[in-house]
Design a protein around this nucleic acid. Structure first.
Lengths: 339, 339
DNA sequence: CTATTTAGATTAAACGTTTTAGCAAAATGA
DNA sequence: TCATTTTGCTAAAACGTTTAATCTAAATAG
C-alpha cells in the first residue's frame, strides 16, 4: 500500500499541490479558495486517508513536533512515572517523546543529545547527570530550547523545574526527631548533583535546629553505580549493635531505600522497632511494604506538566527570561517511622 | 549557531555536495574520489563539527532509524524495565525509540500508530491492547514491519515474543499446592488478552492435575481499568472468615498483586499464615515486602533484545516467515507462600 | 593517431512538504 | 471603454540529503 501524497490528491483533482496544501492546513479562506474546490479536496483527502508526511513537513518547516527526554533510567519507577506524565502532557499538545536513559553518565547524555540534535527534536527535557555542565552550556550557546528537571546547576542560568529538596529532607528528618529519634543516619549518593546535596543539607538543618550534633560518620555516601553490596556494607555499619547505635535512617533516594530496607530485613532487624526508616520518593513498594514506609512524594504530575509547558513556551516565542520553578514535595508519614 | 550542511562544506572547499556526501558516507573509493580531496573533506567536516540532518536523510532515504514502541504504561515497572531493555538494544544498533503508553485502550494505540506511521518510524514494537486486532491486520496489510510483545493474537499470523504464560502460572500454582494449599483463588483481569487467558489456564491445569476441583467462584476478574476499590472488594470476598475459606491467592499481574497485598495488610491478614500469596511479574516491591512475595519473573532482557533483533531483521530483508518466540518465565519462591 | 577506457569529479532530480510571488480572468469603478 | 481591484488559482523555490546519469581530461589500447 503506497503512501499517498499531496501530489496524488492534486493530480486526481487536476489542481495544484499548493492548493491542496493550503486547504488541508485550513488556510483556504485566507487564500480565497472557492468553497467548491475546498470541499472536493477535503473529501478526497478523507477518502484516500491522506496523512501528511511528517518528515517532509519537518524538513520544510524545521519543526518535528518531537521532544527529547533525557533521564537517568526509565526502568526506575520515579522516572517511569515522571516520563509518563511528560508523555501525557506532550501528547496533549501534539508532541511525541523520544526517551533516552543516561544512567547518570555524562558521556551517554552527551551522545544522546548530539544524536537528537541532528534535526530530530525541537527541544529537550533533561535530568542532567553530574559532570554534564558543558553540555548544558553548549545547548544554551546554540539556543536549543531545553528545560532541566529533577536537578539543576546553580551556577548556570537555565529553565528548570525541581522540588524544594532542602525543605522535603528537613520535614522528613524533623518528623523522625519529633518521634523521639536522635541517632539518625543518612544514606545518600556520592555524586555532585545539587538535589542530592540539598537533601543532605535539609537533613543536617533539621538536626541542628533541634540541637542534635551532626555526626559525619552517620552520613554514608554510596558510589552512584551502587549495587546491593555497597548498601549492605553501609547498612551493616548502622546496626544498633554497633557503637553508632543508630535509631533511624533517612534514605535519599528510593533506589537506595529499597535496597537498604531489603538489607535491614535480611539482617533480621525490625522496622521501626529496631530502626526507623524514612525515604525520599514514594514508589509502590513503600505502600505494600510491611510496615509501609514513610516517604517524600514528589508532585510528578505537576513536574511533568510544567516542564512540557515551559518547553513549549520556549519553542514558540524565544523569550529570554529563564523560568525557575521550585515545587513542594509532600512528606507522608507511615508506620516505618512509628506513625 | 547555524547548523552547517553538506553545502557549507562543499562551498568552502569548492567542490560539489555530491562529493562531500560520498566521502562522508564512506563511498569515496567506490566512486574513485582522490585521497587528497577525501582528506580535506573529512577534516573540514570534523572541524566544523558537521552532523548530517537526519530529517533530510530520512526524507530522501525513507529511513528514520527510529522505532515506535507501544506499551500499556511506561509508569508500570514491568513495562519500564522492558522499555529500558528495548531502548538499550535499539541504541546498540543505532536506533532511537519513541515511547507511547496506550493504557490498554485500542483507540489510543490506534491514534499512536497512525501518528507514527506518518513517516516517523521505521517499524513498531507493540504490546497490543484487547480489541486492536484490526490495527494489527492493517499493519500487516500495508507491510509495516512490527513485532508484538507480551501478548499476541492467536488468530493472526504475526511475529511475536512472549513468555509461556500457561507454564509459568502452572508452576506458581503447583508450588502452592505442593505447600499444602488447596483453596486457591485467582485474581485476574477481565480483558480478552491471550496472555491473561493463559495465566488462568495454567492455574486451572495445575488444580486439575492435582485433583482439586476448579471453583469459578474463586476466580475474580477485575475490570481492566481497575482501581483500588475493585481490588478491595474482590479480596474481601476471599477472607478466610468467609465461607470460601481461601488459603492462598494467585495474582495474575503485579499491579493487581501490589494493590491486593496492600488490601490484605489493611484487613489485618497475615501473609502467609492467614493467606499465602504468589504473583505474576517481579517488581522491586516484592523483594522488600515483608514477607517477600513469591513471584514469576519474566526474562525482560531477552524479550527486549529479541524483539529489537526480530524487528531489525524484518526491516532489512523483508523475510516472509513470521518469527514466533516463546520464552520461559521463572518462578521464584519466597516467604509469602511459605517458602 | 584515433578510439576507448579510466579517473575524478559534477549536474540534476528526487523525497513531500510549505510558502512566496505572481498570473489570468472576472468584477468593479471612472 | 479602459484602468483598477478582486477572485481563484498555480509555478517554483526551498529545506538537506542521496543517487543516477553525465561529463571532461587524462591515460591506455589498437
Amino acid at each position: 500500500m503506497k503512501k499517498i501524497s499531496l501530489n496524488d490528491i492534486a493530480k486526481q483533482l487536476g489542481v495544484s499541490k499548493t492548493l491542496v496544501s493550503l486547504v488541508l492546513n485550513g488556510k483556504a479562506k485566507q487564500h480565497r479558495i472557492s468553497h467548491e474546490v475546498c470541499n472536493k479536496v477535503t473529501e478526497l483527502a478523507k477518502e484516500l486517508n491522506y496523512k501528511p508526511n511528517q518528515i517532509a513537513k519537518g524538513l520544510r518547516t524545521g519543526k518535528t513536533n518531537t521532544i527529547g527526554l533525557i533521564i537517568a533510567d526509565i526502568a526506575n519507577p520515579f522516572f517511569g512515572k515522571l516520563g509518563r506524565e511528560i508523555e501525557k502532557e506532550a501528547a496533549n499538545h501534539g508532541y511525541r517523546v523520544i526517551f533516552c536513559s543516561s544512567d547518570e553518565n555524562p558521556a551517554n547524555s552527551q551522545k544522546q543529545i548530539e544524536m537528537l540534535q541532528q534535526g530530530q527534536v525541537d527541544g529537550f527535557i533533561i535530568a542532567p547527570p553530574a559532570g554534564s555542565e558543558n553540555q548544558i552550556l553548549s545547548l544554551k550557546r546554540n539556543r536549543t530550547p531545553f528545560v532541566l528537571i529533577d536537578r539543576n546547576f546553580p551556577d548556570i542560568d537555565t529553565n528548570y523545574i525541581v522540588v524544594d529538596n532542602i525543605q522535603a529532607a528537613f520535614d522528613a528528618t524533623s518528623h523522625l526527631i519529633n518521634k523521639g529519634y536522635k541517632k539518625i543516619a543518612c544514606i545518600t549518593l556520592n555524586v555532585h548533583l545539587n538535589n542530592m546535596n540539598q537533601r543532605v543539607l535539609g537533613y543536617k538543618q533539621a538536626l541542628i535546629e533541634n540541637n542534635i550534633p551532626v555526626d559525619e560518620e552517620l552520613i554514608k555516601m554510596m558510589p552512584f553505580t551502587h549495587e546491593k553490596d555497597d548498601i549492605v556494607e553501609a547498612v551493616k555499619q548502622l546496626e544498633p549493635g554497633n557503637k553508632a547505635k543508630v535509631e533511624a535512617v533517612f534514605f535519599a533516594t528510593s533506589k537506595l531505600g529499597i535496597m537498604g530496607i531489603e538489607t535491614l530485613h535480611s539482617l533480621g532487624l525490625h522496622i521501626p522497632d529496631d530502626i526507623a526508616v524514612v525515604s525520599f520518593d514514594d514508589p509502590d513498594a513503600y505502600k505494600i511494604s510491611q510496615p509501609p514506609v514513610s516517604a517524600i512524594a514528589q508532585p510528578l504530575q505537576e513536574i511533568g506538566q510544567e516542564s512540557v509547558k515551559v518547553l513549549l513556551d520556549l519553542m514558540n516565542d524565544n523569550q529570554s527570561e529563564t523560568k525557575k520553578i521550585v515545587l513542594k514535595a509532600k512528606f507522608i508519614p507511615r508506620r516505618s517511622s512509628g506513625a
